[in-house]
Structure formats: structure tokens, C-alpha cells
Design a protein around this nucleic acid. Structure first.
Lengths: 341, 341
DNA sequence: AGAACACATTGAAAATGATTCAAAGCGCTC
DNA sequence: GAGCGCTTTGAATCATTTTCAATGTGTTCT
């Protein structure tokens, strides 16, 4: 007796048959007992639950998934987790999905080109849906559509194909930033872009450039890659190639804005915002740190993730739903990294 | 003909039976064809692969998991994703596990007390193993052991139970920091701790306190909670309660060190490191930013994640393995936030 | 009271999509 | 034609859901 360790007869974990035997009912009764809204007599239910507790029984989600064709798994495909903006998004998404009884299968890409390799795994696991914050080409989007796996794109829209998406509006955000800078009487503009393959990066830069153009301002664009070091490097580039004295710097995200601010202050002895105004995008944690207080656009992460999860679940439950695109306006955060009117 | 959209006959995705029919072989042949090292004649393999390609067939990992009792899923349970240190760890872990053909089921906890709720799901999905960077009590650890699910604790050790773990050595790290500060002729020490329920937080503070004591130095400890704002707040507390002029500040992580540095400089006009030396722990991204260059202990994230994944896979494959504890020494990063000898 | 009926419970069995083992098939050689 | 590999097939298995028919239970009507 004392020698026997595991409570269930078999070596492994208990199955619904074990519970059924223990409770003296049929296996299907056990199944119904764990299913919401199935008809089981109160007395039977109690017996079964007692047996289940005793045997430490937990329904096998794998077997459930096989028969119901619902894995209750959602793939989250995210390109660079290290970007300070994404951890917050990821945490929000997983917690919200969890609350809906959905599990997250995480795919973190080192490079965008890995996406095909992870898709292979996405298909194999028969996920119910996917939230993607990485670049998908038309063919990959079509693959999702063919398989009837709903996708929500996060901060990007389907290029070519119509796909459901949740985005923070780059255009209105950059407009607000540019307008504020122009009203603040800035004249020589620089832009630090994101990496070439970044959707939001290109979108933000293009929006800023266009608005500047509308307002009769010219600008110098240099490429960054969203990280701190590239903000520093890009500022150095700008200082080298700009003949007039740089006045205002628009960065495609906060991290580069911070890199540029540090670089200006420390490498060039430029006062921010007195001599140079710097604005970013995202509203990540460090943007609000005392040393920076970046003037930026804060993405409404909570509302966006909430929308993404809600839209995904809707589409899992009603496959035919139209590819709605939800655009959220960011909030202009007036920090002290820019001299505004 | 043109009206027929999906290549497979059924509505959904193709199964091995569909492929078998298409290729004119038995279903088990298809199975073997997708299994590494099974014997299939070259001609048959080709026929099958062609059929599979045509039908867009991907083996159903759910069904595989059911029969093989290997889900190829590993749970990663992580307490606060927003701590700047964890995204890097998470990205490394998922990529390394991916490379080994293992998928990540992510559980992100808002509070440590949620752990029981996610464990329920962990059991249901029959994960092959788990990597946990959250507090597990003896009972929860026992539950893993009972089910034969190997666990690797990340940056914490099993309290009571012996469990496999991968840690960065707090003691040697804090010793190095304290020694450097003492040699740098500091006298009035402050410590900002982590939240009460943080394992590493307590460990680091205790190690620092003990070393200071050994060297005949006293210290004032105030509580923080690992985030930037709490570094600021804790510094304010310290300034209020310390009667002598604070000389050296030891923070349980970099984020609080950065908060304290900003607060000292901006709220109190204290020069860092001239008037106050600040040290942290982790070696996260912002620690190396130009504005901070925190003197800290950098955790060898790559080696640690590599070890965690390797240990986990070993234990999945050989269930009996002993609960090894691997301790990694961090590297002292001599920044410019502390005045050292 | 007894029959008829609605209705909640229950259990047997099929189905889900793979792996795997024993047994049969096939192409050779001797 | 027996013997020997290598392939291939058929059947059993994994743990669940779900359908369908059967059983029981209580209510109402005559």
C-alpha cells in the first residue's frame, strides 16, 4: 500500500476511463461531466468529480483537439521580441487569450525570412487562428485563407489580399508630430527610418515626409533599424551629411529617438530640446523616463490587443466574417524632448 | 472543374488517408514516409511526397501527440514579461526550442498567484516539459514530479524539493559589486530590493547585505519592485531616511538602478558617479545606453538559455535524470555609474 | 390507480488522424 | 522452389467527443 506511489493504476496520467471505472459510470458520462452545459445528474456529477479529483484527472486537450477539430491554440508570430514595444503587446495578448480559454503557441522570429519555416509548424498544430506581427506576403496570406485559419495582422495591413488587422494610425500620428514641430518653428528636419523590411517603419516615415512636404518643409532621411544603437549611428550620419544645422528629428520609433537624444547630448553636446527637438513613436516605457520624456505618439496597446483578440475570436467562431481593418489613433504625448509652440 | 476550389475532396485539410489514396498506397506508408528513419522505397516515397505536396498535406501534430504521447510542446511560464530582462530570455528560449523541433506554449502571469490556474492548462495540454521563471511552491513542484513532467527553473532554485535549475550566481555577482564599491572607498550604503515575492530579488539583496557586513559596512535597505518608477521612489525614500550622505547604492536590478540614477540627477541634482555610485544587476539593454552605462553584472543569457534548453531536452528523453543545478557566473560590467578604484 | 407521455440521464459505439507491430508480399539469389 | 531481405499492409491503439437508442423518472389525464 505504502509502496504504491501513483494513485492511478497505469503508469502515466489518468484517463476518462480510469475516472469512469472509479466512479462506477460510463466513460461518456465523464466526458459530459467536463463539458459545459451537458446533461448530467447532480449525484453522478459529484461522484465523477470526486473520482477525478482523487485520480488527479485532467482532460487531455490533445485528444479533445483531435476529435473536436478545435485545438484552442492560437499562434502568435512576432518578429523581434527585443523591441521594447513588443513584450508589452505579447503579455497583453497572452493574458487576454488565456482569459478566453485559448492557449498561445509562440513563434519568435530572428529574421523575417524564417516565417515560412514556422508556418510549417503552424499548419501541423492545427491552430484555430493566428495573430501576426511580422511580414506576410500574399502567398502566405493565401495559405491561411485556404486552410480557413483566421489571421489578425498587428500593426500592418494585408498587402494585396484583404486581411483583418489592428493598427495604430501612423498617418494621423505623424501628422500630429509634424504639425507640432512646424508650429514650434522648426526648419531643418531629419528623419530616422526603420529597417527596410519593416511595414510600420516605412509607413511612418512616408507619412511624416508627406506631411512635411505639404507644409513646404524638406527633410533628410537616414536609415535606422529600430534599436538604440541605430539611433545613435543615424544621428551621426545626419550630422555628417546635413549642411544646415539640424533643427528637428523625427524617429520611426522611441528607441531610436532615445538613442539619438543620448547621442546628441553626449557625443555632440547638443541640448535637447533647446537646440534639437526629437520625437519618436510608440510610447514605450523608457520614453517616459525622467531623462528623456520623449514627445511621441503612444499606441493604445490595451485597446489594440483587446480588439485583436476579440476580432480573432469572432472569426474563429464565424469563419465567414469580413476582413475588417481597425485603425486606432495614438495619443500625442507631449514630453520635453521637443520644443513646441 | 474550375468551380472546385480546394484540392482535397473534403472540406478541411488533407489527412494521411487522402494522401494514401492519391498516391495509391496504404495510409501507414504515408505515416512512415514522414517519419525520420523509417523504411520506405525511394519510388514510393516520391509518389507519396508528390501527393502530399499536391494536397497540401501536413501531418496533424495533434494526432501524432495523442498516439506517441509526446506533444512536442514545452510550457514557458514567466511572471512579468515587461521586465526588460525577460523578453531577451524568452526570445532566446523559443528560438532554441524551435531549433530542436519543440513548440512553445506561453503562459504569462500578471501575478504570481495565477500560477495555479495556468498549471491546470499545462496538465491538460500534456506538455513534455516546462521552463519556469516564476515562483513554484513545493506542492506545485511535486505536481510536476508526480506527472513526470520535467521542469527547469530559471533563475531560481527549488525551495525544499530538489529541481533542475539554471541560475546566474547572485552571490558572486553581488560580492564583486560590493568589493568594487568598497575598494572604491564608499562608506554609506543603500540597497534597493526587489518585490517581496521575488526569489532573485531577495537573494541578491541578502548576498549584498552579507558581504557588506563581512567588510564591516552597514547599509540601509528599502523596498522596490523591479521597475523604473520604484527606483525613483526608493531613492527618494532613502534620501529621506538616511542621515549621513548616501555614498553607494546597490539595486537589485538594472531598471531600478536606472530609475535611481535619473532621480538622483534630476530630482536631487546629485552627480552620478561623482557624488553617488549606483550599481545594478542583469546587464539589460538600457544599462549600456550612453546616458547610464550602469556598472552591473551581466547575466550570460545565451549560455543560460542554452543550458536550460539542453537540460530540459535531456530530461524529456531520459526521465530519470538527476536534478542538476547549473550556476553561471555573471560578468562584471564596469560602466560609469560607479566610482571605482 | 394505471396508462401515456415528456424529458432528463445514461451507455455503447463510431469517429478523429496519426503510430506501430505483426504478418504478408515481393523480388532476388542459390 | 526455398530462403532471405526489404517493403508494405491491415489492424489495433491513443483519449476524447458525440450521436443514438435505451432507460428511468415524474407528471398529467382518464
Amino acid at each position: 500500500m505504502a509502496a504504491k506511489k501513483q494513485p492511478e493504476a497505469n503508469s502515466g496520467r489518468a484517463t476518462s476511463y480510469d475516472v469512469a471505472r472509479q466512479a462506477g459510470v460510463s466513460q461518456s458520462a465523464v466526458s459530459r461531466c467536463f463539458k459545459q452545459g451537458a446533461s448530467v445528474a447532480p449525484r453522478t456529477r459529484e461522484k465523477i468529480l470526486a473520482a477525478a479529483r482523487e485520480l488527479n484527472y485532467y482532460p487531455n486537450a490533445i485528444a479533445q483537439g483531435l476529435i473536436t477539430r478545435r485545438s484552442n491554440l492560437v499562434a502568435i508570430i512576432i518578429s523581434n521580441l527585443t523591441n521594447l514595444y513588443y513584450p508589452e503587446v505579447l503579455a497583453e495578448l497572452t493574458q487576454r487569450l488565456s482569459a478566453q480559454g485559448i492557449r498561445v503557441l509562440l513563434f519568435s522570429l530572428a529574421a523575417e525570412s524564417d516565417v515560412d519555416e514556422v508556418l510549417d509548424q503552424v499548419w501541423r498544430y492545427r491552430v484555430d487562428g493566428a495573430i501576426v506581427a511580422a511580414r506576410l506576403d500574399a502567398q502566405q496570406l493565401a495559405a491561411f485563407a485556404d486552410r480557413g485559419v483566421p489571421v489578425i495582422l498587428y500593426n500592418r495591413i494585408g498587402e494585396g489580399e484583404p486581411v483583418a488587422s489592428v493598427c495604430c494610425d501612423s498617418v494621423s500620428g505623424e501628422n500630429a508630430l509634424v504639425d507640432a514641430l512646424v508650429e514650434g518653428d522648426h526648419h531643418v528636419f531629419g528623419i530616422i527610418s526603420g529597417p527596410a523590411d519593416s511595414y510600420v517603419g516605412e509607413e511612418r516615415v512616408e507619412a511624416a515626409r508627406r506631411r512635411l512636404h505639404q507644409l513646404g518643409r524638406d527633410c533628410q532621411i537616414v536609415r535606422g533599424n529600430f534599436d538604440y544603437a541605430s539611433g545613435d549611428a543615424a544621428l551621426k550620419d545626419l550630422m555628417r551629411i546635413t549642411d544646415q544645422k539640424l533643427d528637428a528629428l523625427i524617429c520611426a520609433n522611441d528607441l531610436m529617438a532615445i538613442g539619438a537624444i543620448d547621442s546628441a547630448r553626449i557625443n555632440f553636446g547638443i541640448e535637447v530640446p533647446q537646440d534639437l527637438s526629437v520625437v519618436g513613436f510608440d510610447g514605450v516605457g523608457p520614453a517616459t523616463w525622467l531623462a528623456y520624456q520623449v514627445t511621441t505618439i503612444r499606441q493604445p496597446v490595451r485597446r489594440m490587443t483587446e480588439a485583436a483578440v476579440a476580432m480573432l475570436i469572432e472569426r474563429i467562431e464565424q469563419p465567414g466574417l469580413s476582413p475588417e481593418q481597425r485603425l486606432f489613433a495614438g495619443e500625442l504625448l507631449t514630453g520635453s524632448s521637443a520644443r513646441l509652440a
